[in-house]
């Protein structure tokens, strides 16, 4: 879902930036208050994993591709605001280093994947915390991915409404919601399920190798 520059109308990306900036400020304050010497290295490891996961494109039938995000995993372990901030940093590095996505579209991607995806994962994890790993980790992560994809599909699908040029060509992203919703949501059902299971494996590894677990040995 790394949308390049030029596909989103300026009113939309300006509004997204206006919405994202206060959330980033809240996230920075929350992170400064809550992170400590034990959680900073763990967060760096999971942020690095999210960076690698979201940089690898998985080919899908039909000539398109998708990728994992790692946001759900970050949100479940560290909470929504650290995950949102860390994933925003991942998106910025991907724009600057890999040319994945655009600067104007970064707030939109951060809000959809980082905030919406992270919120869904955190809320569902809290609701199912006492259950098994599938319900408390895999399902929240998977649904977070699907909800993020749905939000991006809606944002992209509304772009044709922002006008056409003199030749009748859409000024921005040319596909409507009837196309973007199924094209984006359906593959992300599978991507979300796979990322959910991957998150279970990663978090179990992290828990087994945490300082507390090592001290217990």
């Amino acid at each position: 879902m790394h949308v390049p520059d030029g596909l989103i109308a300026p009113p939309v990306y300006f509004a997204a930036a206006g919405l994202a900036v206060p959330f980033w400020i809240v996230a920075v304050r929350q992170v400064a208050r809550t992170l400590d010497e034990e959680t900073i290295p763990r967060m760096a490891i999971l942020t690095a994993l999210a960076f690698v996961l979201s940089s690898v494109m998985i080919p899908l039938p039909g000539g398109t591709s998708a990728h994992f995000s790692g946001v759900g995993m970050l949100a479940i372990v560290f909470g929504l605001w650290p995950a949102f901030l860390a994933f925003s940093g991942v998106l910025l590095l991907q724009v600057l280093l890999l040319g994945m996505g655009g600067i104007t579209t970064l707030p939109i991607t951060a809000l959809s994947l980082g905030l919406v995806g992270g919120s869904v994962a955190v809320l569902l994890h809290r609701a199912f915390r006492a259950r098994n790993a599938i319900l408390s980790v895999a399902l929240p992560v998977a649904l977070g991915v699907v909800c993020a994809a749905a939000v991006m599909a809606l944002v992209l699908g509304f772009q044709p409404a922002f006008g056409s040029d003199a030749n009748g060509q859409p000024l921005y992203f040319p596909f409507g919601i009837a196309v973007t919703l199924p094209v984006m949501v359906l593959p992300h059902l599978a991507i979300g399920a796979a990322e959910g299971m991957l998150s279970v494996v990663a978090l179990r590894f992290l828990h087994r190798n945490s300082a507390a677990a090592l001290l217990d040995e």
Binding site: M1, P4, G6, L7, G63, T64, G102, M152, T180, P187
Partner: peptide, 14 residues
């Protein structure tokens, strides 16, 4: 010159 390409899933290039 500027080239903008978009696939239906939002990926593309500018």
């Amino acid at each position: 010159w500027r080239v903008i390409v978009s696939s239906a899933d939002g990926h593309g290039a500018s």
